[in-house]
């Protein structure tokens, strides 16, 4: 992609990181494809996450602990860390880039208005959740999320996604991914509390923070510190291994493969 467009996207990324902190309650009005009102959760809080990429070593401890904590089916992830090997074309210098991905708990989440039964909704504390008893499994939200943060859980046959481990937050615990992060790269907290670690870090690094796909106008609330703006959109990269093969050359079976 050309440099001008890239830097424009970078500026957009920074801009929306600031704009996202403003409440977007004005959006909540009836109408096709507009945000339904938020419900449940603590209205005095607004949870967000800051990921300090300088601390991430790509160990996937977050991926594994999330998987165990939330009992996700094999092959599907609420969070995962994309890993890239980047080669400088002139010097040949190699570097790795780690990019933890999860639900961005957007201020303007595109997955919510599309839900035909309001099974997925945003709590007043900003956390986007799914009521799996109401979800009809139409998978519209899975298609509507630009971040691939949602999937159909093969065990429950309903939409599944990161909830910032709302059940743990309620009990005064940290989300599994935050708890297990060896470098302390993931910082979660209430952005309405000026004394919280996340608020202080946002204030300190405001100009450096970036979000993913800012041009989609979703106003993500997962902020990346130490981000390379070329990775805020789908990176220009070659895939290495999309399939893991067994010694017979067949794909290693997932738990529910072939459903």
């Amino acid at each position: 992609m050309d440099h001008i467009r890239r830097s424009l996207l970078g500026q957009l990324a920074r801009l929306s990181a600031g704009a996202a902190l403003m409440p977007l309650s004005s959006v909540a009005s009836a109408g096709i494809n507009s945000q339904p009102p938020r419900r449940e959760g603590d209205p005095t809080k607004r949870y967000g996450m800051l990921i300090d990429l300088r601390q991430c070593i790509g160990c996937q401890a977050c991926t594994v602990s999330c998987h165990i904590e939330n009992d996700a089916p094999l092959g599907k992830f609420r969070t995962t860390v994309s890993q890239y090997e980047v080669e400088h074309q002139e010097t040949g210098e190699l570097a790795t880039f780690m990019l933890p991905r999860l639900c961005n708990h957007c201020e303007n989440p595109p997955c919510i208005p599309v839900c035909p039964v309001q099974a997925t909704y945003q709590q007043q504390d900003g956390i986007v959740v799914v009521d799996s008893d109401r979800c009809v499994g139409c998978a519209y939200c899975v298609n509507a999320c630009p971040y691939d943060a949602r999937f159909i859980n093969d065990k429950t046959q309903t939409a599944d996604k990161c909830t910032f481990c709302a059940h743990r937050l309620e009990a005064g615990l940290l989300p599994a991914c935050v708890e297990s992060c060896v470098g302390g790269a993931r910082i979660i907290g209430d952005m309405r509390d000026p004394e919280s670690q996340i608020s202080r870090m946002i204030a300190e690094h405001r100009d450096e923070l970036m979000v993913l796909q800012p041009e989609k106008n979703t106003l993500p609330q997962v902020f990346y510190l130490g981000m390379d703006e070329r990775f805020t959109t789908r990176p220009l990269a070659e895939p290495v291994a999309l399939e893991v093969l067994d010694p017979q050359g067949k794909e290693m079976g997932y738990e529910f493969h072939g459903h």
């Binding site: 992609m1 890239y84 090997e85 980047v86 080669e87 990176p235 220009l236 070659e238 290495v240 999309l242």
Partner: peptide
Amino acid sequence: MNSMAIELLAPRY
């Protein structure tokens, strides 16, 4: 972009 990137690990969506 004056660099080449290889994605080492990606889940299948």
